[in-house]
Simulated assay, not measured.
Amino acid sequence: MTNQMSYTTEEIAALLKVSKLTVYDLIKKGDLPSYRVGKQMRVDDADLEAYKNKTKSGIAAVQEDPSAYMESKTIVITGQDISLDILTKHIEKNTKNIRPLRSYVGSLDSLISMYKGDSDIVSTHLLDGDSGEYNLPYIRKLLTGFHYVVVNLVIRSAGLFVPKGNPKQIYTWRDLKREGITIVNREKGSGARVLLDEQLRLQGMDTRLLKGYDCERSNHIAVAGMVALGEADVGVGIEKAANIVSGVEFIPMIQERYDLVMIKSPQNMEWIAQVMNILKSEAFLHELTSVQGYDLSLTGTIMYES
C-alpha cells in the first residue's frame, strides 16, 4: 500500500470488518480523518494506518477498561410512542457502547423488519381478536426459529376519537357501521389498524361498507386531527393523542399492552441486559410517570421468553 491510496467508507468497513455505521461514527468523532470527493467520503491510507496503529497501542488499556475500546453497537428501535423516545434517551445517557437509532414504523412492520434483521428493539401492540391476547400470537408466528424476549414497556388505553360532544353518539364498534358515519383509518401494519380490523371481523362487519376506511393517516395525532377538523366522525387511536389535540373526545375501548421484543443472540445479550436495567431503573420510571395515560404496573416485566 502507498500513501497515495484512499478508501471509501464501504472499503474501510470491509477492511476493518465493521459496519458502515461504525466507520461513519469514527469519522464523526474525529478518530478517522476524511475528506469528500463529490458525494463520496474518502479516507487516505496513511490515516487508516495511523488509526490502526493507535488502536494497537491501546491493547494494554483494554485490559483495564475493555468497554473503552469495545466497538460501538448500533441498535435500531422501532415504533411511534413517546415512551420509546424516552427509552432511547436513557440508553444514550446510561450506556457507553450502545448507539440507538429510532425508526418510526408500525407494529407489524416492526416485527417484519426484525425478522429481516433490520431492527433490534421493536415495539408492538397487536391484538389477536380470537384469544383477546396482545402481541404474542403475532410474535410467535413471525419470529419462528428465533430466540427472543418480550418485555412490557407500558399499558395504555386505546379507543375511539370523536368530536367534542360526540354529535354522532358513537360509543361501540358496531356504531361505526351506521349510515352517515365517516371514519379515518391508520396505515396497514399499525397496531391501531389491526385493532380496528379485528373488531370489525368479530362483529361480522364488511370493511367495504365503511365510508372512509381507505383514508389512512400514519400516526395517532394525524387521525385525531382529522376528527377535530370535522373531516371524519371517528378514528381509532390512543388516549394520549386525544389529550394533545383540542376538539376531540376519547371513548376508551380496550387496555392494550405495549411490549418490546429483543432477539436473544449471543452478540445481543450484553446490551439486552443493559436495556433491561434501564427499564427497571427509578430514573426511567419517574420520567414515564410524568406522561399522562400510562399504566406502569408491568413496565420491565418479562411477558414471554423463548
Results as ranks from 00 to 15, higher is better:
91 I>C: 09
187 E>T: 15
84 L>I: 06
112 I>M: 12
91 I>D: 03
132 G>S: 13
99 R>W: 08
129 G>I: 07
90 H>I: 10
180 G>N: 13
176 L>H: 04
159 G>W: 03
103 S>W: 02
166 N>T: 06
158 A>K: 09
157 S>H: 10
108 L>A: 06
134 Y>P: 00
134 Y>S: 00
105 V>N: 07
98 I>N: 06
178 R>W: 10
176 L>R: 08
88 T>A: 15
115 Y>P: 01
189 G>E: 03
184 V>R: 10
161 F>P: 00
120 D>L: 09
95 T>N: 02
174 R>I: 10
144 T>E: 15
103 S>M: 08
82 I>T: 13
191 G>L: 08
146 F>M: 12
192 A>N: 09
159 G>P: 06
128 D>S: 09
86 I>K: 11
171 Y>K: 14
99 R>Q: 14
97 N>I: 11
83 S>T: 15
170 I>Y: 06
116 K>N: 15
171 Y>L: 13
103 S>T: 04
143 L>W: 03
95 T>Y: 02
159 G>Q: 03
108 L>C: 03
181 I>G: 10
170 I>F: 11
151 V>R: 04
108 L>P: 00
180 G>Q: 10
84 L>F: 07
131 S>A: 10
163 P>C: 06
90 H>S: 09
188 K>N: 11
176 L>M: 12
178 R>M: 14
119 S>Q: 05
